[in-house]
Amino acid sequence: MVRVLPTLLLLAFTVYCLVSVVQSPDDEVRSLPKWAWILLVLFFPLAGGLAYVIAGRPLGAGARGAGRGPGGRPRPQTPRGPDDDDDFLRGL
């Protein structure tokens, strides 16, 4: 079992990286095109996976800034109720 564990961990890490690459939007993957990351992770599982996690994975929401959507664009405002709208309340 001890000899099989590193192989299982490498396989799990490779699958995690492949799923992450495939599910990431094309315009958010950094450094290389998406297809290049897939090939890199497949042909060099440990080195390619580590490279993707460090340099290719899309930045998280905290790194883009609060209130920002994909690509750093501002998110549209959500609908507000009439009691939250100052202009509506002034008109009453």
Rank of each mutant, 00 (worst) to 15 (best):
M1E: 10
M1C: 14
M1I: 15
M1Q: 10
R3D: 11
R3E: 10
V4H: 14
L5Y: 07
P6M: 08
T7G: 10
T7K: 11
L8G: 06
L8M: 12
L9Y: 07
L9E: 12
L11M: 14
A12H: 13
A12N: 07
A12M: 08
F13N: 05
T14K: 03
T14E: 01
V15D: 06
V15H: 07
L18S: 00
Q23C: 08
S24T: 07
S24N: 12
P25C: 04
D26G: 06
D27R: 13
E28C: 05
V29S: 09
V29F: 15
P33D: 14
P33N: 13
P33C: 12
K34P: 00
W35K: 06
W35Y: 04
A36K: 01
A36Y: 00
W37E: 00
L40K: 04
L42R: 07
L42F: 12
L42V: 13
F43V: 15
F44N: 08
P45R: 02
G49A: 04
G49R: 02
L50R: 11
V53P: 06
V53D: 06
I54T: 05
A55L: 09
A55V: 04
G56R: 00
R57A: 02
R57H: 02
G60L: 04
G65I: 13
G65S: 12
G67H: 13
R68F: 13
R68V: 06
P70I: 04
R75M: 09
Q77D: 09
T78Y: 05
T78A: 12
R80S: 02
P82H: 06
P82G: 11
P82A: 08
D83C: 05
D83L: 15
D84S: 14
D87S: 10
F88H: 09
L89I: 11
R90T: 05
L92S: 11
L92M: 12
